[in-house]
Design a protein around this nucleic acid. Structure first.
Lengths: 234, 234
DNA sequence: ACTATAATTTAGGCTGACCTAACTTTCGCA
DNA sequence: TGCGAAAGTTAGGTCAGCCTAAATTATAGT
C-alpha cells in the first residue's frame, strides 16, 4: 500500500475521483467507458474500482448507468483538483515551466504533496483564483465556481469575448495556441464563421497593439471557453 | 504498477536503493535487518526485494552476509539522494519550511518529481553544494564527496571544530538543536567531556557575539559531524 | 570445537490494482 | 416491437510488495 500524503487514499483512488469529477462537469453522470478511457485502463478495472469506491461511500453507482460523486467524494476530488491547479500555477510562475509542459509534472506531484506544501505554494503566489489554463482553483475548503463559459465554436459572428479557459491539455496544441498569442485573458472579436463546422476567424489585439486575424479550426474552437462581452450566442 | 517520474523504478525500489546507499556509507555492506529496520518492513520482505534487485544488476548479494550497490545501483541511488537534498534545500529556502519538518515532505516528493523539476529547483537555488542538514548534494551526473567528518562524541577537549552535518532526522531533535543555535556552519570549542560516554560541553559563539556554553548528551553528539580546525581526535 | 542464539532465507499467503474472456443489460433503429 | 451492437459487469488470473511461520546459516562464548 502506498498512502499518498495524509489522506489514506491511494494514488489510483485519487486519480479516479479527480477524473470522475471532471467527467461530471462535462455532462451529468460519468460513464464507465469514459472513465476507463481517461485513465487508460480497461473497463472492467473501472467496474471493480467503482464498486470499492461506492462501498466506501465516495460515489453513487447506478449499475449500467454511471456514477456520481457523493458529497464526501466530491470533497476529496476537489482537494486533488486544488493541488493540481496550484501546482501548475506555481511551476509556471516560480520555476519557469511552459504552459504546455506543466500538466504532466503536476499530474505526478498532486499525489505526493502535503496540504501544507500546497498552502505554502498558494501563499507564495498570493492565493490565485485561476490556474495558467484559466481553470478556477478550488479553495482550501472545497469551494469552486466553475465559470459559465461558451465554447468559441458556439459564439456568433460580431460578438466580442474574452478567452477564459483552455480545456485541451495536449502540449502540441498548447504550444500552437501560445504561438498564436491565445492565452486566457485575451480579448477578441469573432469576425467570421464558415458553415458546416468550418473554421472560425477572430480578430485579436496583438501585443504590439496591432489587430491580427487568426483562423481557428472548429474542433480546437470547442476547447476554447470564453466569456462574452455582449450577449450573442448562436 | 506506478512508475515514478521517468526511471521505471518503483517507489519501493527507489527507497531500497537510497537506504542501502546510506547504510553503506555508515559501514561496509548493508545488512538485511538494518535495511528492514530503516524501511519499516519485515526482514523477509527485504530478502525478497534484494533478490529481485540483484537479479536486475542493481546490487551484489552475498547471501547471509549483506548487499552492496553495483555501479548502476549506486548511480540510481545517488539520483534519489540528489532529489531528496535539492528538495529539502528548496523547501526551506523558497517555501519557508523549518529545518525539522522538511524531511518528511522531501521523502514523498523525491519519488514524484522529474529530473527537469529538480534541475530547475537547483538552478533557482544557485546549484547549492550542501543541503540544510549539511549533507552534500550529489551533482546531476552522480558525483558526491561525502566529507571526512568526526562525530562530536569523538573530539577531544580543547579542539576547535565546525559543525558540518547533522545526521539525525527526528524533528524533535532537530527542533532542540535549532533552539540551541546548533546548525551546520557553527564553530565551537570542546571545553569538557565527562567520562563513561558522559555529556560533552562546548563553547559556541552566539549570534550576539557572546560566548555560550552548551552541554550535549553523548548519544546526540554522535550524530553531530564536524570538521576540526586543528588536529585533535581522542 | 560445539552449541545456543541471532540473523537470514525459504515457503506460502494476502491485498490492491490491473488484465482478458465471457456473460448481461441497455438502447437505437429497422 | 424486437434484435443486434455497444456498454457494462462478472469471473478468473497476474504481478508487486508486503506479511507470518518455519527452516537454515552464521557467530559468539564457553
Amino acid at each position: 500500500m502506498v498512502p499518498p500524503a495524509q489522506t489514506g487514499f491511494s494514488r489510483s483512488i485519487e486519480d479516479y475521483l479527480k477524473t470522475i469529477y471532471e467527467l461530471e462537469l462535462a455532462g451529468g453522470a460519468a460513464q464507465t467507458s469514459a472513465i476507463a478511457e481517461a485513465l487508460e485502463v480497461a473497463p472492467p478495472s473501472v467496474s471493480g474500482m467503482v464498486k470499492r469506491l461506492s462501498e466506501s461511500g465516495l460515489l453513487e453507482h447506478a449499475p449500467y448507468r454511471g456514477v456520481q460523486l457523493t458529497r464526501s467524494g466530491k470533497r476529496a476530488a476537489l482537494r486533488i483538483v486544488r493541488r493540481h491547479r496550484v501546482l501548475e500555477t506555481y511551476l509556471m510562475s516560480k520555476l519557469g515551466y511552459d504552459w504546455d509542459s506543466v500538466h504532466g509534472e503536476a499530474e505526478r506531484l498532486e499525489h505526493a504533496v502535503s496540504d501544507e506544501l500546497i498552502e505554502r505554494m498558494a501563499m507564495a503566489l498570493g492565493n490565485p483564483q485561476y490556474d495558467p489554463h484559466g481553470a478556477p482553483i478550488p479553495t482550501k475548503d472545497g469551494d469552486v465556481e466553475e465559470p459559465e463559459t461558451v465554447a468559441l465554436s458556439d459564439i456568433s459572428v460580431g460578438a466580442v469575448a474574452e478567452l477564459r479557459m483552455v480545456k485541451d491539455r495536449n502540449p502540441e496544441v498548447l504550444r500552437y495556441l501560445a504561438s498564436l498569442g491565445l492565452r486566457p485573458g485575451v480579448s477578441f472579436e469573432v469576425v467570421g464563421r464558415q458553415p458546416f463546422r468550418g473554421p472560425i476567424t477572430i480578430r485579436v489585439q496583438s501585443p504590439a497593439r496591432k489587430e491580427t486575424e487568426k483562423v481557428i479550426g472548429n474542433e480546437l474552437a470547442q476547447s476554447l471557453h470564453c466569456v462574452l462581452a455582449e450577449d450573442a450566442v448562436g
